[in-house]
Design a protein around this nucleic acid. Structure first.
Length: 305
DNA sequence: GAAGGGCCTTTGAG
DNA sequence: ACTCAAAGGCCCT
């Protein structure tokens, strides 16, 4: 029912302010696979319900639904213009994914990944939420990370509802710092509670200006992040790629390491730094995208799809 | 500088 | 049911 109405809108009008069934349409010229993008372990708070993805960007709640030629969305944002800007930024529509995929497809394994998951995009997330999320990811798994991050949001974030559905903004570092390690332990974060509480304190004290790191070069920003408790090479690279515009970052987790072993012949015991340099030499500013495609591809393969 | 064990808990093979 | 690795690591020795 939704799809039928959308078809009508998409064809008839490419202006985003057209409303159908309470939703606005945002035309998107870039390749986009919303599901792959929101379910490839970059972000942990988007929930799918009947094809719609519910979540929060900045201070506003959204429901997103992909259709031919773009996105249908409903939002608590006060103006359509603001919503379009937030969506544009989140989905990194400023990246020319066609060109990026063309470059990456130069090698076999990646070309398969690209062929299979065209439209998988990196996200430009809020740096603090992203940092907190990946501190929670240590020796964990996606369902659990997701539960942990959502628990923190529901316990300390401000509610922002949309059409009767309650969603939560992610709480600021001050709020998390004041909650403290014990409370976070109580939310089930385990040994990550101490890391998150301490990092929150440092961020709240202004000892690190996350947003400012968007302007710093990759290695400089990374060094700053790695000063924070609970942040090593891998977590830092995630934050750099998924929120700080450092697309030469290359987070190497177990899946990516496995991909590098199986498809590129790397040794099992290769050091993180060694693999990182290899990837950056090979893919340069595309390393972040290469990582996301390799990760998603291998992960789905091993899940049997 | 490199390697190994511990850490909170949950998940999912077997 | 029940056990026991492994889990999108980091930290300390």
């Amino acid at each position: 029912m939704v799809e039928a109405m959308i078809h009508h809108t998409a064809v008839e009008d490419t202006v985003a302010t057209v409303h159908v069934d309470g939703a606005a349409f945002m035309p998107i010229g870039q390749p986009l696979d919303l599901q792959a993008t929101l379910e490839s372990g970059q972000a942990f708070r988007w929930r799918r319900d009947q094809g719609w993805y519910w979540g929060v960007i900045g201070r506003h709640s959204y429901a997103l639904y992909q259709v031919e030629g773009g996105l249908l969305f409903r939002t608590s944002a006060p103006s359509t213009a603001e919503a379009l800007a937030e969506l544009h930024a989140l989905l990194r529509l400023d990246d020319d994914l066609e060109a990026i995929c063309r470059d990456m497809a130069a090698d076999k394994p990646l070309s398969e990944a690209v062929a299979r998951h065209r439209g998988l995009r990196l996200l430009r997330q809020d740096p603090w939420e992203c940092l907190a999320s990946f501190i929670c990811s240590s020796a964990s798994n996606i369902p659990r990370i997701s539960r942990n991050v959502n628990s923190v949001a529901e316990a300390y974030g401000e509610p922002v509802s949309l059409e009767g559905r309650r969603l939560w903004r992610f709480p600021g570092a001050e709020r998390v710092a004041e909650a403290g390690e014990k409370a976070l332990l109580g939310l089930g974060l385990g040994f990550r509670a101490g890391y998150l509480a301490n990092t929150a304190t440092r961020v709240a004290e202004g000892r690190v200006d996350l947003m400012a790191l968007r302007l710093a070069p990759y290695s400089e920003a990374k060094a700053v992040l790695m000063e924070l408790p609970g942040v090593g090479d891998k977590v830092a690279d995630c934050v750099l790629v998924f929120s700080l515009d450092k697309l030469e970052g290359f987070p190497i987790d177990r899946w990516v390491r496995r991909a590098l072993e199986e498809w590129y012949g790397h040794r099992e015991k290769a050091q993180y730094r060694e693999l990182l340099e290899w990837a950056q030499e090979r893919w340069g500013q595309r390393a972040g995208y290469a990582q996301q495609y390799l990760f998603h591809h291998l992960r789905l393969l091993s899940k049997g799809s």
